[in-house]
Amino acid sequence: MITLTHYLLASALLFAIGVVGVLTRRNVLMILLCIELMFNAANLAFVAYARALGDTGGQIIVFFIIAVAAAEVTVGLAITILLSRQFKTLNADEVSFLKW
């Protein structure tokens, strides 16, 4: 018998793997990919709760999350291309001009 808890556990593990990626990878592209992983973990939790609570609203939220994720990826990848074109690096640690 698969319950809501199973789906939430899978979602939590997926989110944790995404957090590991954001914390350990240096490449801007890989950080963006790991953010996608975390978005998807949230999606899974929303759909699982939509099923458990009998409310289709959770699935609508997933639609909005996908739209926001697409917007985020577009701008993020544009910035990535600019980084590699102007600074010749994709290392997130080397791009720290906004820090003082």
């Binding site: 914390l23 350990t24 990878r25 240096r26 592209l29 990535t80 640690d93």
Partner: peptide, 19 residues
């Protein structure tokens, strides 16, 4: 993502570094 990775065509050594 695939487009950007192929467009940038980076050296694999620089990409493998982990923090």
């Amino acid at each position: 993502f695939l487009f950007v990775i192929m467009l940038l065509n980076l050296a694999p050594e620089a990409l493998a570094r982990m923090r």
